[in-house]
Amino acid sequence: MKHEIRFIINGESRSLTVLSQQTLLEVLREDLGLTSPKHGCSTGECGACSVLLNGEVVNSCMVLAAEVDGADILTVEGLATDDELHPLQKSFIDHHGVQCGYCASGMLISAKALLNRTSRPHEEEIREALVGNLCRCGAYADIIKSIQVASRARR
């Protein structure tokens, strides 16, 4: 079954036709060319496909594209402005929060969701916010540091 959907992606309104069984992740990557959300486990364990759906972090591999009609979605492509990286992105570069990089988009999105509601999270809050994001390089310590420094730099 086909569905006409309209939604806001990274601040821009888009409409397109999707099939019932297409996931949001597939549509973002294949139809919209937004490849920051990664295909990891398909089971909601790894968080590599995380996006913000109406401001809340979700696994885009476990959302049907047909479900997001009318929604507001943010991927890492929407974090930076034309000429400047988001403070989180800068901090991930400066403090080695990116090792192989596969989990980085999901980490950034979970961090963004956290900073949206808590401007100066302490380490325990950061760890809680990253429960749904796995890093198989094991770069957690640097990821947590990157988020901490970014939150301090913000104000």
């Binding site: 909601g44 968080g47 995380s50 759906l53 809340e56 972090v57 979700v58 696994n59 476990m62 959302v63 979970s110 969701a113 809680e128 916010a129 429960v131 749904g132 994001n133």
Partner: peptide, 9 residues
């Protein structure tokens, strides 16, 4: 319970 991603859905 689970993770923020899962709890939100």
């Amino acid at each position: 319970l689970a993770s923020p991603q899962i709890r939100n859905r």
